[in-house]
Write a protein that binds this DNA or RNA. Structure first.
Length: 346
DNA sequence: AACGCGGGGCC
DNA sequence: GGCCCAGCGTT
């Protein structure tokens, strides 16, 4: 039995009709691949539509301001993807005369493009024979071949990349790469795969051993950290508030938020009141403090849980340096803040 | 090699 | 609650 041909046959019958499958324009394929990093198709699809509509060419994207790109990316997460996308667009326009690089070795030089994305673009757009190894490929191959090497190690990556190298169709690398990923996403799913209808069910090593769910093997990651966030929502008499831009390296870089007070444990009224003394815009002003959410909002990221309280400061004065609350919608904000803005009756 | 980085969906 | 998702960059 020929795995390569079986995958391609399976794909010809089962592939979904997705907008980026009707083009080999490298700009569109690049956009789709960045959006789909660590992101399911259902979640990324509306963003692909928005981005291709708002920025039809790499020149349009390069001309935009970073805050516009982040605003359009809002809610999708992993915001460094948006910043790198924008930086690479400017690089392509300014350094490459707007011509998209057309080999794996050139494509991987773009910020935000690693082995997977460079392989995907090079094969799909330029028929380069370079296999993709993503989460779907790890899962499908580890099950079919019964490979127990942990996938999140360099040894594991090399092993799977080499195996994929032997499998890729030399005449149809683009089709093969998309086929094996679609197979992993739709047939060889993480949970409850229907192995009865799988073309490989007679030879799949994991299935023979009845150990489908034990593959792929992955080294466990450490426990998630808890953090305690208190956002200070200032409301002035002239209907303004204060936003700050997140700088530095942490999460949500270059996005906006209400002034943040982080505490070691869940904060109480007195603690927040004390910390407000450091707020220069409140200096010598009269205001009242109240807690918006009695129950902490726990915003779960893959690596930390943010226990969040929103504190409302009502100010009996104007706020010359503040921003009008009806302009709030223009700022790129984390979804945690965006949800608050939607619910809060400003 | 290990870690940080979002948000949503599924079980 | 835990795991996964068309991974990448930094240290």
């Amino acid at each position: 039995m020929n795995i390569t041909k079986n995958l391609i046959n399976w794909y010809s019958v089962n592939k979904r009709d997705l907008p980026w499958r009707n083009t080999v324009n490298p700009y569109f394929i690049w956009l789709s691949e960045i959006i789909l990093q660590q992101t399911q198709v259902a979640q990324g699809l509306p963003y692909y539509v928005k981005f291709t509509s708002k920025f039809p060419t790499v020149f349009d994207l390069a001309k935009a301001r970073e805050s516009q790109v982040l605003k359009l990316w809002q809610g999708l997460g992993y915001y460094s993807r948006a910043r790198n996308l924008h930086a690479s667009a400017k690089y392509i326009v300014n350094e490459l005369n707007g011509e998209f690089p057309n080999t794996y070795n050139e494509i991987i030089k773009l910020k935000g493009v690693g082995d997977y994305t460079a392989s995907a673009i090079a094969s799909i757009c330029f028929n380069e024979i370079t296999p993709v190894v993503d989460g779907n490929v790890f899962r499908a191959l580890s099950r079919i071949y019964g490979i127990s090497t942990p996938i999140n190690t360099s040894k594991g990556f090399k092993e799977f990349k080499a195996l994929a190298e032997t499998l890729i169709d030399k005449r149809e690398p683009a089709t093969f790469n998309q086929a094996i990923m679609e197979f992993g996403a739709r047939q060889c799913k993480p949970k409850n795969p229907d192995c009865n209808i799988c073309p490989f069910n007679t030879k799949c090593v994991a299935l023979q051993k009845n150990k489908i769910l034990e593959f792929p093997v992955k080294l466990k990651s450490l426990k998630v950290k808890k953090k305690y966030f208190n956002f200070i929502v200032i409301l002035s008499s002239d209907k303004k508030t204060v936003l700050e831009k997140r700088e530095g390296k942490g999460i949500w870089q270059n996005l906006y938020q209400f002034p943040l007070v982080e505490t070691k444990k869940t904060a109480n009224f007195l603690e927040i009141e004390e910390r407000l003394k450091d707020f220069s815009v409140l200096k010598d002003k009269s205001f009242s403090l109240s807690l918006y959410n009695d129950v902490e909002i726990v915003h779960k990221l893959s690596h930390q849980h943010l226990h969040t309280k929103f504190w409302v400061v009502t100010l009996d004065d104007v706020l010359p340096t503040g921003i009008s609350i009806n302009k709030l919608i223009e700022f790129p904000v984390p979804i945690l803040i965006g949800n608050f803005i939607e619910r809060f009756n400003f």
